[in-house]
């Protein structure tokens, strides 16, 4: 006992031997952790750089592969305002992504209209009303829902939802905004539920007691106390859901009908930005205008994602600033 515990000064120098090894390994571990942290940023920057670089020739113009020998250049006005996406036309290829943007937005918006109430409702139920076993089972099931691959969701939309929509709406084909919106909603719900459930459970119990002690029933407590208190987290949940919707590819490729057109109702088929890249990049001639334009669509998606995240940040920060004044 007296040997191991440094009751005499000798003990200090015994420990020192081991600490020398630690002194040596410590900077290595710290360095490794720093590297892990920075690598995330480096990878994102690298991806952004690559996508941007590949899209650049479309804007600056490219000489090889030009049809009539003159420099071929993408008309940016046409790119953003034309609903015509005819990249493989032999006569005159047209690269207009308006219809694709409208397709992405309409599917995403419809999916959020369905998913946000459903997801928030489920989160409120799981965090405030369900107890014990049912609660645990429900949580596991919701997590399981998040683990279903998107191609399986697409399959469900194609094989199950498609005939159902044909029966119910009387449309000739059930692959449309509604179909993709429903499938995308079901895919976003698990994210919205788990993030907003965390946000609700992070609300201190003392807030709930304050509401209840003032006479609120459980529902009033939820929407008058919990929602304001968990506002930021709930907003983050919704924005993550939107991000999921805009970025989703395989399921929307299978469920939207994948036809380029400006929709006039939710029963119209559309095509999304992501699905266009997925379906066409493999066939586009590397280095020609079509190829570079598909990367430019990637940049557009980047910009969408950036705007969403920035809005989220600003809203969250705005709330904080208001709170601190």
């Amino acid at each position: 006992m007296s040997e191991s515990s440094p009751t005499t000064g000798q003990g200090f120098s015994l420990r020192r031997g081991i600490e020398k090894v630690i002194d040596f390994t410590e900077p290595a571990v710290v360095g490794l952790i720093h590297l892990c942290g920075w690598s995330a940023i480096i990878f994102v920057m690298a991806i952004f750089f690559f996508v941007f670089k590949e899209s650049l020739p479309a804007i600056t113009g490219l000489e090889e592969g030009a049809v009539h020998g003159e420099v071929e250049q993408l008309d940016l006005v046409e790119f953003t305002t034309s609903p015509k996406w005819i990249p493989e036309s032999a006569k005159k290829p047209t690269f207009g992504i308006l219809a694709l943007m409208v397709g992405t937005l309409s599917v995403t918006i419809l999916s959020m209209v369905i998913a946000v109430p459903l997801g928030l409702g489920a989160a409120v139920y799981v965090s405030e009303f369900a107890k014990g076993k049912p609660r645990e089972i429900l949580k596991v099931l919701i997590e399981l829902l998040a683990a279903i691959p998107s191609v399986v969701w697409g399959f469900i939309g194609l094989v199950v939802l498609n005939p159902m929509l044909v029966d119910m709406t009387g449309e000739p084909v059930g692959l449309n905004i509604l179909n993709a919106g429903i499938v995308l909603a079901l895919m976003s719900v698990p994210i919205i539920v788990s993030v907003s459930e965390d946000a609700l459970r992070a609300v201190p119990d003392s807030f709930r007691e304050a509401g209840i002690a003032l006479g609120a029933n459980r529902w009033e407590m939820v929407y008058k106390v919990l929602f304001p208190a968990a506002k930021n987290g709930l907003l983050a949940a919704v924005l993550l859901g939107i991000g999921r919707g805009i970025g989703e590819t395989m399921a929307v490729l299978m469920c939207t009908g994948h036809s380029v057109m400006m929709p006039t109702s939710i029963f119209d088929p559309v095509r999304t930005l992501t699905a266009t890249i997925a379906a066409e990049l493999g066939e586009a001639v590397r280095g020609d205008m079509h190829y570079h334009t598909l990367f430019l669509i990637g940049v557009v998606l980047f910009v969408f994602a950036f705007i969403i995240n920035l809005t989220a940040d600003l809203i969250v920060k705005g709330i904080k600033v208001q709170g601190n004044e």
Binding site: S206, F207, A210, G211, L214, G215, K224, V225, A229, G323
Partner: peptide, 27 residues
């Protein structure tokens, strides 16, 4: 409503001072 309660840790709701005072009335 007749029996109010004050808690160990102050627990004003994360809304404005004004709305806190009127919260019970709102219910």
């Amino acid at each position: 409503r007749s029996v109010g309660m004050v808690f160990q840790r102050p627990n004003p709701l994360p809304i404005s001072i004004y709305d806190n005072v009127l919260f019970g009335m709102g219910i």
